[in-house]
Design a protein around this nucleic acid. Structure first.
Lengths: 338, 338
DNA sequence: CTGAAAGCGCTTACAG
DNA sequence: CTGAAAGCGCTTACAG
């Protein structure tokens, strides 16, 4: 059933019905009630494509993921939060996957040109990320999950990656550890660089030597955690503590520690940064894992808020947040071995 | 730039331009080339909402996830595959999250009434799943990832869950195990019931006793795997082998085995069913884990194909597949202890 | 092979 | 507070 038919059926003009359904103020409350009830009873819903064409709004936002690799557990938690929030306002999320950076750029161009989405959410930015410049050129509104630098200001939400590692490394130093390893993410990402800075700054402040051999980079998989940790332990002077960039890396690192005949928490302390996954809790591991944590699902919800405000015309400069990170001490950390 | 403007710019009618861009046959090849080149150069793209309104097709398919709980690593791998395939044909994926079954039903009604999507993909069906009947009533085309029963036939893709457990349990029985535990998923799901059947059938065929205390159900988290395995090991006659329904459950079970002072693969054999996650490989665990495996990403791609065929008018009965499951013997299984 | 024009189902400025 | 009508940007039957 379309608007014409529905309006005729209840004896009102299309105009009035349209206004009543969209919550416009200039409709008599009683009229609105009557329209809404009839719509419910007769099962009338405005055709979304027609609405979009008429208003020029897409009613959807886009997210592009590069390869399967980047659409992992972090993405799904984030999307869960984002979707929950946007759902309330009837905004859809449109997901695309691409293989290369060039394809990602092409995807944004396509989304912008065909008016498929009103805004996009960009994630895992590099420093001076080219996507940001592109989206500004395309005039496609966007929010960055993470941080980057750009000539013009833009909206973003990030966690305090610097502070997270500063806290973790500081705590380990307080426990007497002098050789602290870091399992970091992809070098080009801002978050990995922020974590590196936090690591360096803290070690310097504590008068600890910065040994490049104690820093590794790679994907957040258990395999990478395992390999990097094995390499650390094979050093002439192995670390007595390690900071892992994710729970998956931490799982791999813990295995490497055990295989070397060492005990996590006694011989080697471990702190993981964790985005809080419902299916893998640091409390349940043995030993339980000390973490710096940040609820990525909540970040998704918050970015949903920010998108809505952006579309209502709020300035991107007003939409910038950095979230502090929680520190939870559990069983995987202890005094440095004598 | 819109069609009118673009057509005027290159001196052709809107009709011809539209046909050239959509690949209709009745356009002279040279004309088409000229149009396509000009569109590329001038950056013209048809407005997607207008196209959708004119054709009556939404150009999108929907997926609804219940709570964050069900939008986990399996979902993201699946979506990665689905999205890759649909992308090729310019079909978008629209993601919604809901909290309850009632809300999920409401979401389908909304998607159907507002013509937001051309089809939906339903996952994790129960036996005689109410969603199937609803979608048939709504006349909203759909494909089920998994299996269910319904009065009228429908399209689906499932893996051979019965066969997977039959293979795993049979292999363990061949190794001499007589007390084999099963960590299964949510009881109401068809896949969990199929796995139960495979388990029961195999044990009976081998003349092994079916001990209800050796079967546990729950979410596929490491915590559930850990708790269930601890309970199994606390039995007067604990199992010498266990089949875990997912890698996450397997991780938890392995921890419980180790904490009990037992060795995985020697004292207790373990087989996991695994959907093949790039970030957590059974080869990398210690010991490496014997699995029955099925590439959920490939299933996503295949369902993308099936959706496309469904929308082209193929009958649902012609779109039904059951995939066999691979069996990979690794280090976590061995002869039953004497 | 190409074009003029009706139609898809809404929203909204304008008039009352 | 309500309505008649133009317009959003496409597609496609019909005519040539």
């Amino acid at each position: 059933m379309n608007l014409k038919e529905f309006a005729a059926r209840i004896g009102l003009s299309q105009t009035t019905v349209s206004r009543a359904m969209s919550g416009y103020p200039e409709v008599r409350p009683e009229t609105r009630r009557r329209v809404l009830e009839a719509a419910e009873k007769l099962g009338y819903r405005p055709n979304i494509s027609a609405q979009r064409l008429a208003t020029g709004r897409a009613g959807a936002i886009g997210m592009v993921f590069q390869g399967g690799g980047r659409f992992g557990p972090h993405s799904s938690e984030f999307m869960g939060g984002l979707s929950t929030r946007l759902q309330e306002d009837g905004i859809d999320i449109l997901v695309s996957t691409v293989e290369t950076e060039a394809e990602e750029a092409a995807a944004y161009r396509r989304l912008a040109a065909s008016k498929r989405v009103d805004a996009v959410v960009v994630h895992t930015p590099a420093c001076a990320d080219a996507r940001i410049a592109l989206l500004q050129t395309l005039a496609l509104p966007f929010i960055v999950h993470g941080r980057s630098t750009a000539e013009r200001s833009f909206a973003f939400l990030d966690i305090d990656n610097f502070g997270a590692i500063e806290t973790a490394a500081g705590y380990l130093a307080d426990l007497g550890h002098r050789r602290i390893a870091l399992i970091n993410g992809d070098t080009t990402s801002t978050y990995a660089q922020d974590r590196s800075s936090g690591y360096r700054t803290t070690l310097e402040a504590r008068g600890l030597i910065l040994d490049p051999a104690l820093v590794g980079h790679g994907e957040f998989t258990d395999e990478t955690g395992f390999r990097l940790m094995q390499a650390f332990l094979a050093l002439p002077a192995p670390p007595t503590a390690v900071i892992a960039g994710s729970m998956m890396s931490a799982l791999g690192a813990m295995r490497a520690i055990r295989i070397a005949g060492l005990a996590v928490g006694a011989d080697v302390s471990l702190i993981a940064h964790d985005d809080v996954f419902p299916y893998l809790s640091p409390d349940n591991l043995v030993p339980s894992v000390t973490t710096t944590q940040s609820p990525i699902r909540a970040a998704g919800e918050r970015i949903g808020d920010m998108v809505l405000r952006l579309l209502q015309g709020e300035a991107p400069e007003a939409l910038q947040e950095i979230w502090p990170v929680d520190f939870r001490i559990r069983g995987s950390t202890g005094p440095a071995p004598a």
